[in-house]
């Protein structure tokens, strides 16, 4: 348990650093900005209590916010997906399947993880981009930006599963 806590702590710091020091700085074409810190919320233990899930998501979101001058935007989107996570997991999991505690790609299987990643990333990015503009004017433009960035985040997150979080 102690080791697991430490591991999540390291993951929190690393994802935050990668997000604000690397991904927020590469600015493709003004449209794409991947947000991969949502991976932290995805990888928290499956049967973690909901309050801990949301509080951790809020802490991560507000940290990203402070580093990107967008107070409230990332925290709102993170809490949103953290709240929906148990529902999403319940919906995409068969009853016979026995989920392991740690929902990484190697532990849960390729297909399950892809579905999980697509839903979580898409929901997070949609919430994030609409909160950022804070209006439904230019609805399609925002949708386009959200989906484009989601695709990019998705690739980075799945790749990271092959490279770093293997075990």
């Amino acid at each position: 348990m102690e080791r697991l806590g430490f591991r999540y702590f390291v993951m929190f710091i690393v994802l935050l650093a990668v997000q604000v020091l690397f991904l927020n700085q590469i600015q493709f074409s003004g449209y794409i900005n991947p947000y991969i810190y949502v991976l932290f919320i995805m990888l928290l233990p499956v049967n973690m209590p909901k309050y801990a899930l949301m509080l951790l998501a809020f802490a991560l979101g507000i940290s990203v916010d402070i580093f990107s001058n967008s107070l409230g935007v990332h925290s709102a989107a993170s809490v949103f997906v953290a709240y929906l996570r148990p529902v999403i997991i319940r919906v995409i999991t068969n009853r016979e399947e026995d989920l392991s505690e740690y929902p990484g790609l190697a532990q849960t299987g390729f297909q399950w993880f892809l579905g999980y990643a697509v839903i979580m990333i898409l929901l997070h990015h949609l919430a994030l981009f609409y909160l950022e503009v804070f209006t439904f004017a230019n609805f399609l433009n925002t949708l386009y930006r959200a989906i484009l960035s989601s695709v990019f985040s998705f690739f980075v997150i799945v790749l990271s599963q092959f490279i770093i979080f293997r075990e």
Binding site: K50, Y51, M54, L55, F58, G61, D65, N69, L71, G72, V73, S75, A76, V79, F80, Y83, L131, F134
Partner: peptide, 25 residues
């Protein structure tokens, strides 16, 4: 229903942050 209430609370805090961007900025 505490998870839902906590959810509402955290979202309201965030939205207050977003709406009051001027003073926080």
């Amino acid at each position: 229903n505490y998870p839902f209430l906590l959810f509402l609370f955290l979202e309201v805090v965030s939205v207050v942050f977003i709406v009051n961007y001027n003073s926080f900025q």
